[in-house]
Design a binder for these strands. Structure first.
Lengths: 247, 247
DNA sequence: CGGCCTCTTGAGACAGTTCAACCTATGTGG
DNA sequence: CCACATAGGTTGAACTGTCTCAAGAGGCCG
């Protein structure tokens, strides 16, 4: 029996406590674990019935590709996140999903999920809360692309990421692992990888943050927050902050 | 007794038929109609309990404001759309909402909605389908801001808008009313109003589309679709197209 | 009539792109 | 164990899409 659900239930507990009975229902959803290697596709764009997952371990990104070959990364997914849930009801998968690191994900049985939603309204509310929070992050990302310049986008993204990872206890000493290449950051933030490189250098030289060897360190938290105009209210995680401390 | 729900139920019927009993439940949700004038705020950003609506008549936009005074319009809402539903479960309203035209909207009672979700799972699925579709549109918009240039963004937006409005039968002769100022289009598409003006001119001079006196006319549908790389699959409305015809 | 909002156009500036080169680390087959 | 390929990162120089600043025109309303 695989050890399951710590990340998801810890997140849901930010909304309301997960009762023992609900914990069992979640475990039922998380029985079928599948594994993927970096670069594997968990879902494809197109009109076929696509799978929904709970990401248990590892990182993925979801993306859209454009006719000209351009790619827009929509979200970075970390353990505890839902994957592909939007396509449970839509009849087409509107995006692809690729593993960044080795990934373990539990595949959701649609009928079983339907049962949970109908028979456990309280848990259903927790799940819909998490989905609403995902959408709020999407809106914030959209705002970044529309109205923040490259530097602010970068700073804002890493502050959000720290807050999300801290739910899983992955932030320590103002620092966390981050397996995102500059190419991925570029397609996420609507930039070129060349410009990502320059922006990261600027943040480093300003003493704000460093990304090196797959690890992020926030050097000046107050400076980052002021720069990005970051207000974590939209993450709705009052109980738990970014894990970062002023220096 | 106000005449209610044609737009929403027509939209939900694109997913599955709305049964008579479900129609009654929807009518129950749509009892408390409120009216707003252009410029009125239906919701504010901030940590208070915000209201959820179904937009019955008129147009709104939702937006975020940045510390530097910049504004990003997140979505344009037309009759039949949900407003503020994300903040039903989140404990903070992450965006504002402003009426563009005179608006009639039914205010949703949260407890009553909860009842519907629990007691009418089939209708709940239709509602969640519509919410998923809204999210898919958000993702497409995000992709526009990240990886499409100003002209493609504009063309893509108006093709999507036509498809949405055609559900309400508002598209006729490749033309539809559109009360969006160039300032609103600018904040929606992450541009300045000056550049919006130039892009609209370019589209007009290319014989692709015209926006004049609050009315859009698509002059060259195939050209627009090819230019924007528009694929309406993400709207998941197989039953009904954009109402536009090749010329 | 004056004030305001929206639309329009021009000219110069700049953020970010494109193209090109080179560097380092890691892995692989001969 | 070297030769080579690949992936990620770094830097420079020229180019361009979009912005900023500035000015003016048309329509609507009090």
């Amino acid at each position: 029996m695989p050890q399951v659900l710590p990340a998801l239930s810890r997140k849901l507990a930010l909304f309301q406590p997960v009762l023992p009975s609900e914990r069992l229902l979640l475990q039922g959803l998380q029985r079928r674990i599948r594994h993927f290697e970096p670069g594997d596709e968990l879902a494809y764009e197109g009109p076929h019935r696509s799978n929904a997952f709970i990401l248990e371990a590892g990182w993925c990104y979801t993306f859209k590709v454009l006719p000209d070959g351009g790619r827009q990364i929509v979200t970075i997914k970390v353990p505890g996140d839902f994957l592909g849930w939007r396509t449970i009801l839509l009849r087409t998968s509107d995006h692809g999903c690729t593993a960044i690191t080795p990934v373990a994900a539990s595949e959701i049985d649609h009928d079983q999920l339907r049962q949970v939603m109908v028979k456990a309204p309280r848990l259903a509310a927790s799940i819909l809360w998490a989905a609403s929070r995902d959408e709020a992050m999407l809106v914030e990302h959209l705002t970044s692309l529309g109205r923040r310049d490259a530097t602010l986008r970068m700073a804002h993204f890493f502050l959000e990421l720290a807050a999300r990872l801290n739910i899983n206890g992955e932030v320590e000493d103002n620092s966390f692992d981050c397996p995102l290449s500059q190419y991925v950051l570029a397609d996420l933030l609507g930039l070129t990888s060349i410009h990502v490189n320059r922006v990261l250098r600027k943040l480093r030289e300003a003493g704000l943050m460093v990304l090196r060897n797959g690890r992020v360190t926030i050097l000046d938290l107050a400076g980052m927050i002021a720069l990005a105009g970051f207000d974590r209210a939209y993450l709705d995680q009052n109980g738990i902050d970014s894990g970062l401390k002023p220096t």
